[in-house]
């Protein structure tokens, strides 16, 4: 059955409309959960708030499990979904740049757009950075990225296990991570209490 757009079961206009509504919902959820607050995001690095890690880990796993379950039962042909190429070195470099931005400014690309929408000036500056990155990628694709592409990489295939088993292992890692970060958060907050962000009125 799915995916809908690559098989042209819905038109481009409807596809963009759906993207608009899902994106708006995502933004509203992020804002509602306090993710446009830079302190909440920076909290991951200082150890007093791991909600961001939990949310994005959960989101990635939900999407992965959902997609592969639908694939298993014939509701979605995963081969037709967009599967980006892997750029090993650029990903490491970009990861470091993003992590620096994350710890200095307290935004990741998604939350910076939400923050900009709520009128935060630092959010708007970050969106500018995102745009520069996007344009830089687009204009240097042929000279830099094309040569560094590893093609479509599937870690599960590379190790030689099924996608289901790989996702199961990642879920186990997530469960362990959830328990560990909750302990770290509790220990840190007991020692040096930080007022709940919601109560700071920021």
């Amino acid at each position: 059955m799915g995916p809908l757009f690559p098989q042209e079961l819905i038109s481009e206009t409807i596809n963009l409309l759906l993207a608009f509504f899902i994106g708006t919902g995502f933004g509203l959820a992020l804002e509602g959960a306090g993710f446009t607050n830079t302190r909440k995001l920076a909290g991951v690095f200082y150890g007093y708030d791991f909600v961001v890690l939990k949310v994005f880990f959960t989101a990635a796993l939900t999407a992965a499990i959902g997609l592969f379950l639908m694939n298993s039962y014939g509701l979605m042909d995963i081969k037709l979904t967009f599967y980006p190429q892997t750029f090993w070195i650029p990903t490491v470099v970009a990861g470091i740049i993003m992590a620096l931005g994350f710890v200095v400014g307290g935004f990741c690309p998604g939350t910076s757009v939400c923050a900009a929408a709520t009128g935060k000036i630092d959010g708007i500056v970050f969106v500018g950075g995102v745009l520069i990155g996007v344009l830089g990628y687009a204009f240097s694709y042929e000279t830099v990225f094309e040569k560094l592409s590893l093609g479509q990489v599937n870690i599960a295939e590379w190790i030689g296990i099924s996608n289901g088993l790989f996702i199961f292992i990642v879920t186990m890692v997530a469960v362990v991570a959830f328990v560990v970060v909750t302990k770290i958060q509790k220990a840190l907050n007991d020692k040096n209490p930080v007022a709940e962000i919601e109560n700071l009125g920021l």
Binding site: T58, L69, A174, V175
Partner: peptide
């Protein structure tokens, strides 16, 4: 947190038992 983790765990376990991909 516990509810979310349990759901994820069960769902990934289900995926493990689901027929391997591809019709």
């Amino acid at each position: 947190d516990i509810i979310v983790i349990s759901i994820l765990f069960l769902a990934s376990f289900w995926l493990l038992l689901a027929p391997t991909s591809g019709n």
